[in-house]
Design a protein around this nucleic acid. Structure first.
Length: 262
DNA sequence: TACTCATGAGCAA
DNA sequence: TGCTCCTGAGTAG
């Protein structure tokens, strides 16, 4: 489930399992041609911004990984398993192997290129600045834009880490219609969107799934009960009983409640 | 077995 | 806006 919370979880797991260690790196599929260059290097630290993960090795070697829709990580304890299917890259130490399949991006960059990636990305609710500067960046981009908030939340230059599920759920929780222009939102509403993003993504990191109903923040109720509107088109709203609507917006499915989100 | 769909994003028109 | 790429799960027949 590659929205920002998944990527941060994986980065945490990498730090626990591989941080400070010398890694064996190979590409069974053969498409990650830089695997040989990284093999035998020490991983300093893993970090994440939005949906992108960065593995920082010695000598200014950084692997940038973006899962896209299809990308997946699998961690195996014990002996390295036999390769099944298309494995882009494997990272291993004695007793642990991490396999990456189907990423949109898996490439080696240096710190200069990393800075350029950081510049492009909007603030990440999972890396909040205690001084509130990240919120200010988000608010200023939203206020200046005549684009609907439903599209702005999906734009990684505006806020990074939000995907289709959180987009729909965060707007529902804020009772904001996704077609509302960014510039028409009140500061209070933008502030609420940011605060709720911080909250929901943090819950997501904790559980590993996207739970957006407060009553289930402590325990996952299963995928049919986790959300308010996502994938619930045609079903009745859990609050106002109106039917949840599904529209296509910029090629992606957009779910909302026409009663609660006027 | 074949087809459809998905939590993403870059690019051309 | 539509096409393309990447992979695997679920479903129809």
């Amino acid at each position: 489930m590659p929205e920002g919370h998944t990527v941060h979880r994986i980065a945490n797991e990498f730090n626990e399992l591989f941080g400070g260690k010398v890694l064996r790196v190979d590409s069974p599929q053969g498409r990650f041609t830089d695997a040989r260059m990284l093999d035998g290097q020490r991983l300093k630290v893993a970090s994440a911004v939005g949906k992108q993960m960065f593995l920082h090795f010695q000598d200014d070697l950084i692997i940038r990984i973006h899962l896209g829709i299809y990308g997946k990580w699998q961690f195996h304890k014990g002996l390295a398993p036999e390769v099944v299917g298309q494995v882009r890259v494997r990272f291993a130490v004695d007793g642990v192997t991490a396999e990456l399949r189907g990423p949109t991006v898996c490439e080696v960059i240096d710190s200069k290129a990393l800075a350029e990636v950081y510049d492009r990305l909007g603030p990440d609710p999972l890396n909040p600045d205690p001084n509130g500067r990240e919120f200010e960046r988000f608010a200023s981009k939203v206020k200046k834009s005549s684009t609907p908030i439903g599209l702005l939340l999906m734009n990684q230059e505006v806020i990074s880490g939000i995907g289709n599920v959180y987009r729909a759920e965060i707007l529902y929780r804020a009772k904001i219609n996704p077609h509302t222009k960014g510039s028409d939102l009140k500061t209070r509403q933008i502030s609420e969107l940011w605060a709720d993003s911080v909250k929901l993504l943090s819950i997501g990191v904790l559980h590993g799934v996207m739970i957006t109903r407060d009553e289930f923040f402590d325990e996952d109720p299963g995928k049919l009960e986790r959300n308010w509107v996502y994938k619930r088109e045609g079903q009745t709203c859990r609050k106002c009983r109106k039917k949840i609507v599904l529209e296509m917006a910029a090629g992606r499915k957009l779910y909302f409640c026409p009663g609660c989100q006027r």
